[in-house]
């Protein structure tokens, strides 16, 4: 069914119609929330809260990209979770819980256990680099480089100018590069020397 029609029905109290939108966007939303919060449970909580907020605030949706409007709610809810939690990451990278399904997805039958371990360490390093960024820079780089949003969409989601978005993205990339450069021994040989 047409997205506008689903929104219209949702505004009339049709929860099934809204849930069709949830099904369409829950994958994208969870990816962003997971990368911003760096914790599966917190990401799930934040995303569920986001959909509830979105349903409640549907009257405020004034057209345009529903995806951007929804992702702005997701990002802001993730910020709320980050602030209310005021958590300090005490776990080391080795202690991070690993979802079994996630591991299976990472497994490539063609690679050796050694290669798999290296790849996993690299991914954890990148995730850690992202987590080290301030919220606005983290949001910009996650949306652009991890989730593949366009500049205009990111500008809409973060309520910033496109120029500001580009600037944030460039700064975020620079910081990630520097973070990786400090742990160059974990990088693939292609990057090891160039990023140092």
């Amino acid at each position: 069914m047409d997205q506008d029609k689903l929104i219209e029905l949702s505004l009339q109290g049709d929860l099934e119609a809204f849930n069709q939108l949830v099904i369409e966007y829950q994958g994208l939303g969870y990816g962003v929330a997971y990368r911003l919060l760096d914790d599966p449970d917190s990401a799930a909580d934040a995303l569920q809260d986001s959909f509830i907020k979105a349903f409640r605030a549907l009257e405020n949706y004034r057209g345009g990209s529903f995806k951007s409007w929804l992702m702005r709610i997701v990002v802001n809810t993730c910020y709320d979770h980050l602030r209310s939690r005021q958590r300090k990451r005490t776990e080391s990278l080795d202690d991070m819980p690993v979802d079994e399904e996630y591991v299976v997805q990472l497994t490539d039958r063609s690679e050796s256990p050694h290669e798999f371990a290296e790849r996993r360490e690299l991914q954890e390093l990148i995730i850690s680099a992202i987590s080290s960024l301030p919220e606005v820079l983290r949001t910009a780089i996650v949306l652009r480089d991890v989730e593949g949003y366009a500049y205009e969409e990111i500008a809409e989601i973060t309520s910033a100018a496109v120029g500001t978005v580009k600037s944030r993205i460039n700064r975020a990339r620079g910081r990630v590069r520097d973070y990786l450069g400090k742990n160059a021994e974990l990088l693939p040989s292609v990057y090891r020397h160039s990023l140092k």
């Binding site: 829950q26 969870y30 990816g31 599966p40 480089d145 593949g148 990339r173 990630v176």
Partner: peptide, 11 residues
């Protein structure tokens, strides 16, 4: 490297 991060499965 950032783009190589795998998609996160929906829990």
């Amino acid at each position: 490297l950032l783009q190589d991060l795998p998609a996160v499965p929906l829990p």
